[in-house]
Write a protein that binds this DNA or RNA. Structure first.
Length: 374
DNA sequence: AATGCGGGGCA
DNA sequence: TGCCCAGCATT
């Protein structure tokens, strides 16, 4: 790829024109949140899309909208119901913020999202970019966004060096984003930028040949579009160990609710021995301490779950009890049918972290011959 | 196994 | 203001 130093990005007006033309012809217009557009629907989609790709979000979004069609419905729901709908998406603090935000919109804004970026930003879980997306897409206001897709597109077109996590780099990109954002058709422009980043200007193997800015992109001219945006400096992830006690009686599993904030906040998991890699042996110890008798104990294969800042090695131990104990945990806890836990639709009031859902699935497979004799 | 995604919250 | 925090899909 020859380097052409004379290449220049388009002026804002030409940029908008080319982008909107591309969007009209090749962009996606049939996504669920592009139908019946209103602030509530756009807001929910934006929060989900912050962390997950479109194809994964769609089923969650449809289920969410079916259960909570309005901000009032969401505000009236229990946090457990909301977390259950979020179960498997990750970043559960966002679901908690989503719920809190709905209640704020109802109690302090009469059930209407405020029609201005600054006021939107005050709401829990809504930052500058998400506020811009809601304002432009659902209200037609001339507000800029700078999500991951837009960062990638702009960083490449202008060959912006550095990692966008750095304040100076982010500020430079916001300035470019504001400069390009048009006063007319702002919502279409916003969706077009996100669409371009998601479908053509992808992290790896960008489809530059099909890009409307192929001949006006500095990174393309340099021949190294994937060098932009700059990478986050990486650091070592520590490893932590934990033993999970999958306590089962008669097809039911014992679960406890996590504290409201922090890791897996508000979600339901089996009793946990933290910083423990003893597996079966420490499970025996725990049972003795609880004065419980197990009918059967079986260590299951190690499950490594990686969080953003550490690895968690989960040592699951399946414990089959002959009798259901009367013991009650400090916090919320309960016994739940394994086969219901295994079907998201039938555990509408219970959020499970992804690795726990995976373990439940394994357990069901293990138990299936016993549960459903043919 | 590495990567990245947007915002909250704390020193 | 600059860090650290958080869960999963994709690659």
């Amino acid at each position: 790829m020859p380097i052409n130093p004379s290449i220049k990005p388009k002026t804002p007006a030409r940029f908008q024109q080319a982008l909107l033309k591309w969007f009209d012809q090749h962009g996606r217009h049939d996504l669920p949140w592009q139908q019946d557009i209103n602030p509530y629907r756009v807001w929910v989609s934006e929060i989900m899309l912050q962390q997950t790709q479109v194809t994964a979000v769609i089923p969650y979004y449809l289920r969410f909208m079916e259960s909570f069609p309005t901000v009032q419905a969401l505000a009236a729901a229990s946090q457990d119901q909301v977390l259950a709908h979020w179960s498997g998406l990750g970043y559960y603090a966002r679901a908690r913020n989503l719920h809190k935000c709905a209640q704020t919109v109802v109690s302090e804004h009469g059930g209407k999202f405020p029609r201005d970026v600054e006021a939107l930003t005050e709401l829990p879980g809504i930052g500058r970019s998400t506020a811009g997306a809601i304002a432009s897409i659902s209200m037609g206001l001339p507000a800029a966004i700078l999500d991951g897709n837009v960062k990638r597109v702009l960083a490449r077109i202008h060959a912006v060096a550095g990692w966008p996590g750095q304040t100076a780099v982010a500020n430079a990109m916001w300035e470019i984003a504001e400069r390009y954002t048009p006063a007319e058709r702002t919502g279409d422009y916003t969706q077009a930028m996100m669409d371009l980043g998601a479908t053509l200007c992808t992290r790896s193997r960008p489809a530059c040949q099909r890009c409307p800015f192929e001949n006006h992109c500095v990174a393309r001219a340099q021949g190294n579009p994937t060098d932009y945006p700059g990478k986050k400096p990486k650091k070592e992830k520590p490893e932590r160990q934990t033993t999970l006690l999958l306590i089962e009686h008669d097809g039911e599993l014992y679960l406890e609710q996590r504290p409201a904030t922090g890791l897996w906040g508000g979600l339901w998991i089996p009793p946990q021995l933290e910083d423990d890699d003893g597996g079966e042996a420490s499970a025996q110890e725990w049972l003795a301490a609880q004065d419980l008798d197990a009918r059967e104990i079986q260590a299951l294969p190690l499950l490594r779950h990686t969080f953003s800042h550490f690895h968690l090695d989960i040592h699951p131990v399946w414990i089959s009890l002959p009798l259901k104990p009367t013991r009650v945990a400090e916090g919320a806890s309960g016994w739940y049918k394994l086969r219901q836990l295994d079907r998201p639709r039938s555990r509408q009031d219970l959020g499970l972290p992804a690795p726990i859902a995976k373990l439940v699935k394994q357990l069901v497979a293990l138990r299936e011959p016993l549960l459903a004799p043919c």
